[in-house]
Structures are given as C-alpha cells and as structure tokens.
Computed example of a mutant assay.
Amino acid sequence: MQFLKPLVHGKLIKRYKRFLADVELDNGEIVVAHCTNSGSMKTCIEEGAEVYLTHVDDPKRKTKYTWEMIKINADWVGVNTGIPNVIVYEAIRDRQIEGLNTYTEAKREVKFEDSRFDVFAKNEQEACFIEVKNVSMKVGEYVRFPDAVTTRGKKHLETLIRVKESGMRAVMFYVIQRSDISVFGLAYDIDLAYAETLKKAVASGVEVFAYQAEVKPEGITLVKQLPVDLNFPSDKGLFDI
C-alpha cells in the first residue's frame, strides 16, 4: 500500500484521551492528530520521537491529521490500525499471500452472525472469513498481542470458531508494523482470556497468520511471514518491557 500523498513530518509531544496526540510540525506549528489505535501502545510511544501524519482534507473532521507512524530505535513503527485491513485485503485480492492465494473473489467488511470480519474471500471450492489485527508491542525478540484487554477481539475469535464449525475456513491474521522482532506471541499477562480463546480457536481449526510489514513514509508493505509461538512463556522475563 502506497500513501496517495506525501506525509507530514513532525515530533510527538504527547498522546492523550487514547485517540488524540499533540504533534509539533517541522515549521513549529502544533497540531492535534487522530490516533486510530485504541490500545495502550506500549513500546511504541516516545515523546519527542519523529512521527509522520496524513493531512485529511475533510471539512467534517474535527482533527485535520491522522497519525501514521513513529520512529522507535531508528526504525519506523506503524500505529494506524486501519492500515493492516487495507494491505491484507489488497494482498489477498492480488493473490500475494501463500496459503491464501487461491481465492478468486475478496470483499471487505462482511458480516457473519453478529460479527463483521475484515475480509471475506472465496473460490469455487471454499469460503473464508479473515479477521485482521495490528500488532506493535515488542517484548524481547517477540511481538505480543494484545497490548490491552480486548473483549471485542475475544468475541471475534469466538465467532471464528463458529465460522469453522459451519464448514467454512476461518483465519486470524496479525500484521506486525515493525521490523525489530522475529516471533509472534501472546500477551498472557495482559489479557489471559484472549490468549486462552485464541488457543481454543486454533484447536478448533482456526488458522493463524502473522506477517511482518515494512513501514516507510512512502508506503507499508507485507514482507514476510513470522513464526507463531502460542505457548505460555516459562521465563517471566519475557513479559518485561
């Protein structure tokens, strides 16, 4: 996915009220940017760090900027949680993901029972519901999910189990918008219920994909699949952030 227009550079002053951030632009102007990430954003918040924003030309919007990425340890980390939905949909549509590259049709935001999933794909042989999550919390070499309790995420997993039971394929797809990690895992210490539900979902046949994305001011692209480790860490030090 390429950004349609150049991003606006600045530095983070602070994030507050979850969905707002004050940013000082290069020209000294201080603006309020919308933060799409409802989680804690642990390990990807650093006041004074470089950030990039999208300028939004919508007179109905209260905030004229959307926060896209932040530089942490010399690398860009994507913080816009809407981006993964777009890049996964495009990659499935264009048959770029091994294991999900046989579908002839792909749609976004399709409902099953009382849940709306990010991508629905099908071919003549099967149909597949895919839920997409953004992951950014670094713990050692791991990136862990979630960074805050997510009852909505747990509900999606429970519905994916029912998708599988109905005879369709069900996929949980995690997009990691940072490059300084090598394994995907679960944050048992933050949301044990979510972690246990994901393990139950996998045992029921729900598939897990974890893909690392390359984050640049020009665009964000899926680059490689990461190993998935759903075991409870025996070394509690893995939880230290």
Rank of each mutant, 00 (worst) to 15 (best):
G167A: 06
A121E: 11
K133Y: 10
G140W: 03
L238H: 13
I87D: 05
G185N: 10
K111A: 15
D57M: 08
P146E: 09
T159Q: 00
D114H: 06
E158W: 02
F129I: 00
V163N: 04
R178I: 09
M172I: 01
I97C: 11
V79F: 08
I241Y: 11
R178M: 08
L222C: 09
A210G: 10
K200I: 05
E47I: 07
L25F: 05
P227D: 08
G237P: 01
I161T: 04
Q125R: 12
Q125N: 12
S38L: 12
N123L: 09
W76G: 15
V223A: 06
V23I: 14
V8E: 08
L198V: 14
V119F: 10
M172K: 15
M1G: 09
R144P: 05
Q225G: 07
V183F: 08
F117N: 05
F232A: 07
R162P: 01
E29H: 08
S179Q: 15
L192E: 11
N231P: 04
I161N: 02
D229S: 13
T36C: 12
K11F: 06
T104F: 00
L222I: 12
C44H: 13
N37D: 15
H34D: 09
E90N: 06
G205L: 03
F145Y: 15
T102M: 09
V132F: 11
V119D: 04
V8L: 06
R93E: 15
V139S: 09
A21M: 02
E109A: 07
L7G: 07
G237F: 07
A21P: 00
M168C: 02
F112V: 05
F232E: 14
W76E: 15
E29Y: 00
A203P: 02
L160S: 05
E47S: 11
V31R: 04
M168Y: 03
V215S: 04
Q212S: 13
A203C: 07
S38T: 08
E165A: 12
L53N: 04
Y174Q: 13
K154Y: 13
T150I: 01
V215H: 04
K122Y: 08
D26N: 11
G167K: 02
I92T: 06
Y65Q: 00
K14L: 06
N101P: 09
T36F: 13
F3H: 12
G39S: 15
R144W: 03
F112Q: 03
G219N: 09
T197C: 06
D240G: 00
D189T: 02
